[in-house]
Every structure is written in structure tokens, then in C-alpha cells.
Computed example of a mutant assay.
Amino acid sequence: MTRLANRKKFDEYLNLQWQKLSREKSPISLLLCNVDFFKNFLHADDHLKTDKCLQLLATEIKSVVKRSTDLVARYENKKFAVILANTDSQYLFM
């Protein structure tokens, strides 16, 4: 629905990058995005609206992740995750 990687793909990719980057002694960053107050929105009868909201969130998150080595995934119902290979914290908040 969100056209993002699923949790299984996330787990596999994180493991792969963790092993690769640890051998190279390179950094890895992980962002977890939780949508607050989404439960209130889910109580609405319009499931299409809920799906559209998740799709818009996924699109926005994906739009800021540019590198092919990075991965944006749907982590859980209202959570998204981003794996940023070769990225340490000093670059995250610039």
C-alpha cells in the first residue's frame, strides 16, 4: 500500500548493512518514525482516508532519502524506519 519495503525486507537489509559496515568500520544510522495520535484517525469509518494518509507520509519520508544505499520501510502499523548507510549523527541534523 505504501510502496515501501516491508518489515522482512527491513530486517534483511539492516542485517546485511550492519555486517558490511562493521567490516568497513563505517557508521550506520537508523531513524524510527512513529506517527503520534494516529489511533484517533484510525477510528474514522473511512479506511481509504487512513490508507491515503499513510501513503502521503511514506511519500514524504521517501522524498528526503536520496541515496541508493538507504532504505525506507514500513516498520509497523504506524511506524516507519530509515536505514542510512555510511551516516553518523553529525550529518543527521544539518
Rank of each mutant, 00 (worst) to 15 (best):
M1T: 15
M1Y: 09
T2I: 04
A5T: 04
K9I: 15
F10S: 02
D11S: 08
E12A: 15
L14Y: 01
N15S: 14
N15L: 13
L16M: 13
Q19W: 07
Q19H: 15
K20A: 09
K20F: 05
K20C: 05
S22T: 07
R23N: 11
R23P: 02
E24L: 11
K25L: 07
K25W: 01
S26Y: 12
S29N: 01
S29V: 02
L32Q: 03
D36I: 09
D36N: 10
F37V: 10
F38T: 01
F38Q: 00
K39G: 03
F41L: 13
L42A: 13
A44E: 09
L48E: 14
L48N: 15
C53K: 06
Q55W: 06
Q55I: 14
L56Y: 10
T59G: 10
T59I: 08
I61C: 04
I61W: 06
S63K: 07
V64I: 13
V65G: 07
V65K: 11
V65S: 08
K66L: 15
R67K: 14
R67N: 06
S68Y: 03
S68H: 07
S68N: 12
T69F: 09
V72F: 02
V72Y: 07
A73F: 02
E76Q: 10
E76K: 12
E76A: 11
N77F: 10
N77H: 13
K78W: 10
K78I: 14
K79H: 12
A81F: 03
A81L: 04
V82R: 11
I83L: 09
L84G: 01
L84F: 07
T87R: 09
T87M: 12
Y91D: 09
L92K: 00
L92Y: 03
